[in-house]
Write a protein that binds this DNA or RNA. Structure first.
Length: 435
DNA sequence: GTAGGGTTAG
């Protein structure tokens, strides 16, 4: 059955411009009705949308793939690429195995996506590295870059370096990835050294270094780099600013924080949820609950972290009522599932206000109703609350019976409470335990 | 049709 070439090219351009799964399914339906569903060119476009677009549907992509009689390298690559964005490593690997069995030749794209998919599992990544070597891709810049990323992500800077050194050609990605390898290993001296040697530095390289300095506690250095970056004529983007806001927060530098906030507004970055979350945290750490609140209120979308950040901000600034009200609003009205950090924030509010009963209620409900295991921080928070309230025996019993190992910190809190409440006997009991 | 940098926790 032959088809009007105009119709085919029309459907092709439709599938190229596809913007939603609804549209995609309509096109797919038409293909089926017209018996055009084996047209690989059109199918490839549909598959790409379903597999990699943020509004795609990986399941649907996989189904499309399965109904393709002879998927070529592009089909495999695209589906592996889609899975690389998820946590699944088994799917990309089984696709690769399938690919090898069906004698579909992998190309540089295959290894790129495959290595990305496996970057959380070093063992698998190393096996892919072997295949890269065996199949002759060890001189390909993109593939080698993905290998550097693999070893960087798994904290093996020296192997990353080895891959880098053996590359016949390096691009800015190779260099940045090496900077990242040292940053991940918290070796900022080496990171800075590589950075200084770079023939050209782009926004990613600067961002990696800024974020790195922030991570290891060199906050001021991070801010200095941010200014140098702009002097060098490189435009910071959302991710850069994320690190910069975090550095301002850690420095409790309200002035710098506010100027960065202005920058965010000017550049139109405030759509980014993570960035707003970082701002909430920054204002909270700088002691400006009102400003933290203003950011939270204006957010068009909120994530779990947004709620956690604002609840903690309220908790730490003596707005316990507000913190618990937000906790209710979050879980009941907004329908956001709390996590361990949420409960810690809400319990911190109770600790701040001395609401022991409410604290207990939260600790119990997190485990029983929400199935979130309490950590030493939750128990420590609760024990501290009890100790402060003078319920020393209860605090002691809690620490002794909790299912996680206690820390010196927890005992110290109880010790000082014993001193305040004049309980010498328990003081001695604890000291003997610690010795 | 390649890639690398990413927020919360007294």
């Amino acid at each position: 059955m032959s088809h009007d070439p105009n119709l085919v090219s029309h459907l092709l351009s439709l599938s190229q411009r596809c913007t939603s799964m609804r549209e995609l399914k309509t096109i797919h339906g038409r293909l089926l009705r017209l018996n055009l569903h084996l047209n690989t060119l059109i199918l490839a476009k549909l598959l790409r949308f379903a597999a990699v677009s943020p509004s795609g549907d990986l399941h649907y992509a996989h189904t499309l793939f399965c109904h393709t009689p002879h998927p070529d390298t592009f089909f495999y690559n695209t589906l592996i690429r889609g899975y690389a964005k998820t946590a699944s490593t088994s799917q990309p690997i089984s696709l690769f195995t399938h690919m090898r069995r069906s004698s579909t030749p992998p190309d540089e794209f295959t290894f790129n996506f495959l290595l990305n998919a496996c970057s959380r599992m070093l063992k698998l990544g190393e096996e892919i590295h072997g295949q890269v070597f065996k199949l002759g891709f060890s001189r390909n810049t993109h593939v080698q870059n993905a290998l550097i990323h693999l070893y960087a992500a798994n904290r093996f800077p020296e192997i990353a370096r080895k891959v880098f050194d053996e590359m016949p050609q390096r691009d800015v990605v190779s260099w940045s990835s090496l900077v990242v390898a040292h940053v991940k290993a918290r070796d900022l001296d080496s990171a800075k050294k590589v950075f200084d040697e770079m023939p050209e530095r782009d926004v990613v390289a600067w961002t990696a270094l800024i974020t790195g300095f922030d991570r290891v506690g060199h906050f001021a250095e991070a801010l200095v780099l941010f200014w140098k970056m702009q002097e060098a004529g490189v435009q910071p983007d959302e991710v850069t600013i994320l690190g910069v806001v975090s550095a301002c927060a850690n420095l409790q530098d309200l002035e710098a924080g506010m100027s960065v906030h202005c920058y965010i507004e000017e550049r139109g970055f405030s759509w980014m949820v993570a960035l707003c979350n970082a701002l909430i945290d920054m204002y909270s750490k700088c002691g400006c609950l009102e400003k933290a609140w203003a950011v939270f209120e204006r957010m068009p979308r909120r994530s779990l972290v947004s709620w956690n950040s604002i609840i903690l901000a309220c908790a730490l600034h003596g707005a316990g009522e507000e913190a618990l009200r937000l906790f209710q609003e979050m879980t009941k009205e907004a329908g956001v599932r709390p996590d361990g950090a949420t409960f810690l924030a809400a319990m911190s509010a109770c600790a701040h206000e001395g609401w022991v009963v409410e604290g207990w209620r939260l600790l119990e409900s997190m485990e029983r109703e929400h199935g979130i295991p309490a950590t030493i921080e939750h128990y420590g928070c609760m024990a501290g609350m009890l100790a402060h309230a003078g319920q020393l025996e209860a605090a002691y019993d809690l620490i002794m019976s909790m299912p996680v190992p206690s820390t010196e910190e927890v005992w110290r809190v109880l010790l000082s409470a014993c001193k305040i409440h004049g309980n010498a006997a328990m003081r001695e009991r604890i000291v003997n335990r610690l010795l």
